[in-house]
Amino acid sequence: MELNNEVSNKTLLNSPIPKNEDASNVVPIEQQPLTVDYIFENLIFHETIISVVSLYSEETIQYNPTNQLLKYYKLNENIQENIIKTLQQMGTSIGKKLSLDFNNNSTMTHLQIIKHICKEVYHKIFGRQIDSLKTNHQGIFYLLDKQLLANSSIDFDKSLENYNPSESQKQIKCLELYPNFVAAVLGGYLDRSVTFTMENRVITYIIKY
């Protein structure tokens, strides 16, 4: 028994030293947060949406614009619904995974949770806060985003031969894919449905409690 005790004491004495070394090794890794360039992250975000559109429009269409997003508005309505469904499924699963770090305390009011979304969750996605927040103080919140679609590259295709000025209003329909995706992410984060409206390229997300 004594021998065993001695051995155990020795191991206990020896054990803290490698633990300290491990701790010193771990700390610098934690000090460097995983960061990526903003433009690179944004390019991949756009490319995911375009690639989902191109999955459903591989064989059906001969129309081949420089901006592949424009393929969307010439598809059938059934296929358009399928595209939006897959984007929303992706968005909700992403939102649920993002919300694993977030401790939803019962002490937080609705306003505090919404502020957390405006400042931190939106910053994770686009690298900036949301532009403005409005409420009616009865449980409905309006989040405005003016920058996301302001410089979208859909207008660049006006020089093409296929372009008709009468179709430009239909082409704006393609831009609905972005807020559909982001609204699903926010909805997955909060576990409730988030709707949106779009007017003059200003998106308003509507959250009801």
Binding site: L34, D37, Y38, E41, T48, S51, I94, K124
Partner: peptide
Amino acid sequence: QNMKKINAEFLTITYGSLVKVLIDH
């Protein structure tokens, strides 16, 4: 010098879900 940096969390999760969609399709 590059001031526009983002946490990589959102990128890795979106990429993973995209690969899953591709495999399903």
